[in-house]
Design a protein around this nucleic acid. Structure first.
Lengths: 207, 207, 207, 207
DNA sequence: GATGAATGAGGATTCATTCAT
DNA sequence: TATGAATGAATCCTCATTCAT
């Protein structure tokens, strides 16, 4: 039998077999997202998670092997969610630069609505370095692919590649930190516009 | 008499009063830098630190009040060190864009030589959020000031400011992550050149 | 439904929810009484307590927040127990002096059976000064109330009050120390009789 | 060579040989009295003592073998001081009851001026049970001796002895606790008078 | 004698994980 | 499945005492 396994349904022996089980599991995942996002990995506790979920402590281990495992699941899930959101923002027949602007705008919005991703993905560097690195490498990869398309279509300079992709990613991440997580009151449209202008034609004066 | 007090010599009741004491304290700081950089805050242990330093466990508390305190000291010290390195890289009479290139080059080098700063400063988000935020806000501030000078001198477009400063910082940080921490074999001159070109005139094709 | 909450069942988040839990908690309380009584607060250790109780170290913290907390509970419990024992000794229609004699006799017996109360309540002076003071103030208060009734009934001189109450308490406490804790072989009836005679008509010779 | 050894000059190898040494030693004793009286034995620290004394940590061990030793010295010293004060209060040709009144009055005063004795002597029960017991047994003994004299002179009933001595001691101690340590504003003359009246002729009404 | 650095045993507390019901 | 009690390794921190200068 072939089973599609999404991020959270990885090969593990702990799949719920009843509906009630599925509901409990989901409650635990939501609770863990809140707990990790609020306290960070190390200060988060299984008791804290089961407390939020309204289940007994022991029930956690009915669905997850360890604190690490659920954390990795969440990183994976959030990483997928960001990617998906960015993908949704991409409209066909957009210019390459418009695509980047949309992606940034979508990201700023997502970050504002899910501030915890910052904490969770960032802390993954310590808890699960592999997930962390994979997340950013996948993201840079996607940006680089978009750049390649932009080159092909003539929108972008032909001599750009990996360096520019990482630069764009860093730009986006820190704008998210500044204008979504720390300053939720910012005007995202304006931020995206300014960043995109810089990306398009730089900051040198045009003399 | 004027006494310079660096970050690590802040008013605390635990200053060494002899030379021997000063040496021990320094050994502990070096050991802590290695331990935190290698294991992250939570997996680092006082035993690990004193083990590396070659002192007894209790000696740690002769100079520091707690694991938290030494960590904060380190974040502060590293934050100051990065800043100083960037400042040293700034040559008088450079154009604004050359200044940014120098700063990035200096940072990439520094990051390669002190890979642990990534772990330490990054983990500060969880251990000591205030330091973390302050570090990045101070850094962005300095970049913004340099941009303002570039505007004044006519090197840069007059309509740039905070958004661009944060974007540049994010760009630098992620290039450091990719090309200093994860890929120490990279050609920093080329990375700086490419990033600076993007910064100067953007990535749009010039038709 | 009315639930009686004794001193040790105060509102805390650590109440056992099963019978097994209740048994374990009680074992810990008994063990702590022995440990504190034998070694005093500071030399007592959680390991010592759980060792006596036959539970794992960590189980202590399933039911108590800290070494201080259980100590306070014990002081409270013992304070209540002494009070209760003294109250039980009071027979209706006794004369005021007979009441004091019964109270002392009951106390001497109680002290002999629970020698540890001396150590525990006494050390409370340092560990938990408030409990300590409260214990003795409550006790003196009760004695004073009994004296007041004796005055009303005409058994006692009308000009006595707080000073006499504290004097009686001190007398009882030290007789307990000498004849119950240190000299368990003493004849309590004789001690009570002598002390009561002194209390009734003093020690001056009757010429 | 015969050396008179007072309480604090017990056979120990640590007698100061110079004047400066004697002064340092005394500073340490005064500091220890304050420190123990304020914090109790266990919360007191050698650092606390040397800090108050204004000497270096290591200097403590130039004069005392251990924390226990200095504590025992202090208990002994204070015990002697109380005894001496009580002795001084005894005027020749006083009646036995007047003698007890004077002793109590002297004690109340002493306790008011040296509140720390309560803490120190009381905590001795845990730190140095032998000193503690000896202190009270010596005190009871002295009272009993005075009672015997009172009997001989015909002032007191002939059938009193150890029980009454302990009762009087307890009375005194608790009146000291209540009216000197906790209520320094009390009228000691009145307290002594009331307690003495009770002692003389009891509290039964005279019908 | 005086100083203060060095030592390390000792103890409280936390919490992920296991287990019995 | 759900529950919550039991477990004990792990770790921070304290502080009396020793020691080198």
């Amino acid at each position: 039998m072939i089973t599609r396994t999404s991020a959270l349904e990885r090969p593990t022996t702990k799949q719920p077999r009843t509906d009630r089980g599925r509901r409990t599991r989901q409650k635990l995942i939501d609770a863990a997202t809140a707990e990790f996002g609020e306290k960070g990995f190390h200060d988060a506790s299984i008791i804290g998670i089961t407390g939020r979920a309204g289940t007994a402590l022991g029930s956690f281990y009915t669905y997850f092997d360890s604190k690490d495992e659920i954390f990795r699941s969440l990183v994976q899930e959030l990483s997928d969610a960001v990617k998906e959101r960015a993908a949704l923002a991409l409209v066909p027949n957009q210019s390459a630069l418009d695509a980047e602007r949309s992606a940034l705008a979508a990201f700023l919005e997502f970050a504002r609505d899910h501030k915890e991703i910052y904490r969770i993905i960032d802390e993954a560097e310590f808890v699960d370095p592999q997930s962390y690195r994979e997340h950013y490498e996948r993201t840079a990869q996607r940006i680089e692919e978009r750049l390649a398309e932009g080159i092909k279509s003539g929108d972008l300079r032909p001599d750009i590649g990996e360096v520019e992709a990482w630069a764009i990613m860093g730009m986006n991440v820190f704008l998210g930190l500044r204008f979504s997580v720390w300053g939720a009151d910012a005007d995202h449209t304006e931020v995206s516009r300014a960043a995109n202008a810089m990306l398009a034609t730089g900051i040198a004066s045009r003399r």
